[in-house]
Design a binder for these strands. Sequence first.
DNA 1: TACCTTCAACCACAGAGGTAGTAGAGAATG
DNA 2: CATTCTCTACTACCTCTGTGGTTGAAGGTA
Lengths: 128, 128
Amino acid sequence: MSIPKLSKLEMQIMDALWTKGECSVREIHDEFPEKGRPAYTTVQTMVNRLEAKGAVERAKKIGNSLIFRATLSRTAAHRRLVDEFFSFFDGRVQPVIAHLIQSGKLTGEDIKEAQKLLKEHTEKREPR
Amino acid sequence: MSIPKLSKLEMQIMDALWTKGECSVREIHDEFPEKGRPAYTTVQTMVNRLEAKGAVERAKKIGNSLIFRATLSRTAAHRRLVDEFFSFFDGRVQPVIAHLIQSGKLTGEDIKEAQKLLKEHTEKREPR
DNA sequence: TACCTTCAACCACAGAGGTAGTAGAGAATG
DNA sequence: CATTCTCTACTACCTCTGTGGTTGAAGGTA
């Protein structure tokens, strides 16, 4: 199957797995900031659903607790999100850029960085 | 209340209103490409929900059919979407840009355009 | 061993979104 | 006027998310 769609909460859980590596539900739960932290069982439910979606798998068992591992890469999940998002704009990036600039999220630095990346990218596919 | 969150289908419906102006449910329905067009009543349901969310209002009645008008602007809805989306990335634009470049969505043209917009933007807020 | 803690597993439930059917009012037409 | 078409209004139903309670097994501890 293709890359599963992940909701916001699911992404937060994956984030814990991606940054901390293999984790128990308890560890994932603790990663949430105290303020607005969901119940332990909520995290548990989401981890189970992620497992059902194939985004996560059981790595091993320590004592009576399961340790999970992300099987879906952060990059793949992000790409999925980006594609999904841009489909709202017919795949056109320009309107999005306009909003980013107006809200001050996109700076000159970012643009410079983008140019560098683009150059690397094109050079890689069209080596002279 | 603040800007309501709109789903994909809801956005498609708003798109019809935004581009065609005031519309009846029938007209909105007809805007969908034949392939994968939802049932008339489905569109109706969504329009009602959009009305409940305050994104749309009844402009007038012609015969026995209602004509709707968007009360939420395309810009506001888009900004909402963009903010929502970037919150997945902690508000950082760079990882998104990387994906865009890798998938070929972001071209040199786009970057040039972005620079122009950014210049205009900064000049407007900090006129020398 | 008897108790306390910690998990996994399972269950429940509400809200949003997507999908659509049906009933009944009104308009249009022969 | 009677029939047919077209809309609105209402209802139903399924899936996905988010949320969290309950139960019972496993492990640790006095």
